[in-house]
Design a protein around this nucleic acid. Structure first.
Lengths: 151, 151
DNA sequence: TTGTATGCAAAGGCTTTGCAGATTG
DNA sequence: CAATCTGCAAAGCCTTTGCATACAA
């Protein structure tokens, strides 16, 4: 299987370890959110994370507050796939490869794109005087399934 | 001056022409919005467009409704610079070059990036079965002004 | 015990929608 | 006249915040 967003399915124990390493309390909620995000094959929105919590459920505000902390520690990465809300995936700490996504504009399915060489662009931008450059590159298209439906 | 987002400052008349060409009514509001977006050196949010309308002012809901129509006709392009809301700029019809942006994460200033060669990525994605591929590439960094402030 | 986390309720920002009246072609 | 557009008010969605209570270290 190629199209998983990361192979780091964190176990409860690994999640707890990661929390401790980052000076965060090992609460049921934090562990559950971390496991949910790490298990997902595609990046999840806050609402989707909330839905996935099942038994360990908590208020949506707690999800957002937790995501803020995880972002600060770079445990997770916030993505913007042009949908009008953010998605989250495990950050470089747990999963170590930089990558991008393709989202189907018809069905919303999200796949992973591995390769990335933005060095040409980044050099150009640093010549403009910028530092700490980050790029945000995502693709949309119409996937093969949806192409067939359209016929 | 290099860092304008487009050189197509539409006059009232050109704006009216563009509307007719696209089968849209030539209302005061539509013309005003089109002129405002075309005059701006940086992409504008709906709220910013609304603020710029001055005498020709209208309800913010009308701005959004108009933007939807302009998007459908590809008169304008909707951008997502990771701010949590959308920005709009004149589309390929009026302004004819494809480009990207750098946004300073400190001061929010937005500049234009001209060059773009995503063909390598797009080939890869079309091999995955996608069609009608579009990419969304934007940069953030810390601009030279803000770098100085941080010292 | 001290600081952090949480639930609940409320609010804020951006965007959409319903409806009735006004405007356009 | 028919179709489209508009203002107003309300609501929807995503996200944040205040406060009092509960939990972790």
């Amino acid at each position: 299987m190629k199209n998983k967003c990361c192979e780091n399915h964190l176990t409860q124990d690994k999640a707890k370890e990661l929390l401790s390493q980052n000076g965060l309390n090992r609460t049921k909620t934090k562990v559950a959110i971390l496991v949910a995000v790490s298990k997902s094959r595609t990046p999840l929105s806050a609402t989707e994370i909330h839905h996935q919590l099942g038994d360990e459920t908590c208020d949506i505000s707690t999800v957002f507050r937790t995501l803020v902390q995880f972002k600060e520690k770079e445990i997770i990465k916030e993505l913007n796939l042009g949908e009008g809300f953010f998605r989250y995936e495990i950050g470089n700490i747990a999963s170590n490869h930089h990558h991008h996504h393709v989202r189907c504009r018809e069905c919303g399915q999200i796949k992973l794109i591995e390769k990335c060489d933005m060095s040409v662009f980044e050099k150009m931008i640093s010549k403009l005087g910028y530092d700490q450059i980050q790029h945000y590159l995502e693709f949309t298209g119409v996937c093969s399934k949806c192409l067939k439906k359209e016929l």
